[in-house]
Design a protein around this nucleic acid. Structure first.
Lengths: 165, 165
DNA sequence: CTTGGAATGTCAACAAGGCTGACGTAAATT
DNA sequence: AATTTACGTCAGCCTTGTTGACATTCCAAG
């Protein structure tokens, strides 16, 4: 058996194990988005709208450039999505008081309603998975995911974590 | 503290914990695809080509309909990708001997070379994450991901696992 | 006060990669 | 002989990403 000096097996680092992890990520991500996608289809919205709504809900009053950084898309791409959400009355855009160039984004009641239905669906699957795997597995799950992020994304993720704590 | 009769804490099932998991999936998936994406950009290929190449490498001789089921796209969409890979000499398509309607797909040496560079990049990140998190965390990571999949995808995933064992 | 840069919005054009629908062909199955 | 299966392909559409250019508004620095 492959063992380190400390006696810890390194078998979990074989290419075979890594490949399984890669495929698990692929298939799991499909499940992860499946339920919200089902809700969004039929409405005029897609995954991009879901993401915007999620992070506006998460950080009410966030600015456009803030959202841009988190979502990692161009302003033109985000603007299209935001435009639709604002026109449809799901998102409210407010000029900044301190800095009037910024637009602060908020969900309207209607927007909150959509957010709720999307996140309920997504959480339900996540909850089932968490329950099936147990708390120790969940801790490991989060550790590996965090280690997998790009540093800037990890920073964004942790900023969100604090804000929500 | 919220405890079950068995004394097991259920705090890991709170909406807050679930939300963190959801955001972790989002940010981690970005990291997960970032390195192959960088390689693919500039070449005429995208993520769709990566996926096809990955699963053909994984199951040499697999049929088109097989691949269709695993990737979960339409034949028109897959065909566009496959067409490019075949025309560029990365994939070889062979009429079935037993059933001549089927096309069996193989990577050419050139295709194997691309697959290798993509999976090397992706594995490097995965390996770093695994190493940082440790074997116990990795086990939990895989458990949660597996529990998150749709049943058919879990079946496909496990079929792949066996094949590779 | 002027000027540079930041934050935002918007128009136009384009590409990747999904989708549906329709049609064709070859081969297996009944 | 008729039907079904596996595959390929044409045509068109949608979402969501991209680049480039340009306008506006406003903060901040000189």
């Amino acid at each position: 058996m492959a063992e380190t000096k400390g006696g810890e097996s390194l078998l979990f680092l074989t290419d075979e194990q890594l490949r399984k992890g890669i495929e698990a990520m692929f298939f799991a991500y499909r499940g992860f988005t499946a339920d919200p996608d089902r809700i969004l289809e039929g409405l005029d919205y897609g995954r991009a709208h879901h993401r915007a709504v999620h992070f506006i809900h998460r950080s009410p009053g966030t600015t456009v450039s803030n959202l841009l950084a988190i979502l990692g898309v161009t302003k033109q791409s985000l603007n299209r999505v935001l435009r639709a959400l604002i026109d449809d009355g799901l998102v409210r855009s407010e000029k900044g008081k301190r800095d009037a160039r910024e637009r602060h984004l908020y969900l309207t009641p209607k927007g909150q309603e959509l957010e709720r239905s999307l996140s309920d669906a997504q959480r339900a699957r996540m909850r089932a998975a968490y329950r099936a795997a147990g708390p120790a597995a969940v801790a490991g799950f989060r550790q590996v995911l965090e280690a997998m992020m790009d540093p800037e994304m990890r920073a964004a993720y942790n900023r969100l974590k604090e804000g929500g704590a």
